[in-house]
């Protein structure tokens, strides 16, 4: 077998993953399950981007749900106020998210570590509070007061992708493939960043900031770029979320949602490539079960975060790759014996 370089290898895995999901509706036809897979796509997009920032670029951002919300709100506001098409509103919303990230990044990324985490969290919370305390009506929608940023209820019942009249009872498939496309775009985007030139710069920065900067790698510049790119893709996830659910509201800012995604990243494996995908799947299943056991969602999230960080800070992927290495090592030994 010829040795493929990292980028090609991971891109091939990405193609495989997307192809698998593309044929999945042949086997799964229940609308509920397809809906769950769509949710998986959306959260996995957010988780992968967060991992890109936290695990690779060394930016501990707690504003990821803010960028998601900007995508969702941007799309909702575009459709509600200007009547523009969903297909136009989503890219605009994603770009707005990236622009906001650019501004926040330039202001905050002079700092590092915990400072960045706290500031990004504070900014996200500030925007959250400003939105829910806004009571001034911007327009009237169906005779109800509609605040510019949706107030404490947010936006709902706006246009979605528009597959209902087109595909009739199979409309969910339209949503499924649309979100899958966004998911695929995210996978390729994230892989190209992690394993491409930008990722190389990140590894250099992480290993030795001083040496990297003496070779012309400006930490702040690269981190701001990573911040904006990940916000672009996270905003895209927010946009398709809003279009799928026809909803964008302040619940997106809730701390427990942030922890839910963080748990996906941590459980899967911070700093890996595919960990967040696995983490997303596992956390969705775990939370689904915990809801049935007397609404223990936050309890389980908290426990998962603590246990994984303390016992397995590199996540399940690391565990799996260790096990794999051990198995292949043993196999080689048996070969050598025989």
């Amino acid at each position: 077998m010829t040795q493929l370089d990292d980028l090609t290898r991971h891109l091939l895995i990405g193609v495989l993953v997307i192809a698998t999901f593309a044929v999945l509706p042949v086997f799964i036809t229940q609308r509920y399950l397809l809906g769950e897979v769509i949710v998986f796509f959306i959260w996995a997009m957010v988780a992968m981007n967060w991992n890109l920032l936290m695990g690779h670029a060394g930016v501990f951002s707690l504003a990821q749900m803010l960028f998601f919300a900007v995508g969702a709100y941007g799309m909702a506001m575009g459709v509600t106020f200007t009547g523009m098409s969903v297909w136009v509103a989503i890219p605009i919303a994603a770009v707005s998210s990236a622009l906001l990230a650019l501004i926040i990044g330039m202001a905050c990324l002079r700092l590092t570590g915990a400072y960045v985490a706290l500031l990004t969290y504070a900014i996200a919370e500030m925007i959250h509070v400003l939105i829910i305390t806004d009571t001034e009506c911007f327009t009237l929608v169906r005779n109800n007061c509609q605040q510019l940023f949706g107030g404490s209820t947010g936006f709902s019942r706006f246009d979605d992708f528009g597959f209902r009249p087109l595909l009739k009872k199979h409309w969910i498939l339209g949503n499924y493939y649309t979100v899958l496309a966004a998911f695929g775009l995210t996978i390729f985007g994230v892989i190209v960043i992690i394993h491409g030139r930008l990722g190389l710069a990140f590894r250099a920065i992480r290993d030795n900031v001083g040496y990297a900067s003496s070779r012309g790698i400006d930490r702040k510049k690269y981190q701001v770029v990573a911040f904006a790119l990940s916000a672009l893709l996270t905003g895209l996830a927010g946009g398709v979320y809003a279009a799928h659910y026809r909803f964008a509201g302040p619940s997106l800012f809730e701390f427990s949602t942030l922890m839910f995604i963080l748990a996906m990243v941590v459980v899967g494996g911070l700093g890996s490539t595919w960990g967040p995908l696995i983490g997303t799947g596992i956390m969705m299943i775990v939370v689904e079960f915990s809801k049935e056991m007397g609404d223990a969602r936050n309890l389980v999230l908290g426990l998962a975060l603590i246990i994984f960080v303390v016992v397995m800070p590199k996540g399940l992927v690391h565990l799996a790759s260790n096990a794999w290495r051990k198995v292949s090592h043993d196999r080689q030994e048996t070969k050598a014996d025989s």
């Binding site: 985490a117 936050n298 603590i306």
Partner: peptide, 17 residues
């Protein structure tokens, strides 16, 4: 630094619940 932030955030949400 990063891990303990995550762990204490987890603890926070646990106590709150």
């Amino acid at each position: 630094g990063t891990n303990v932030l995550v762990a204490t955030a987890g603890l926070g949400i646990l106590i709150e619940d």
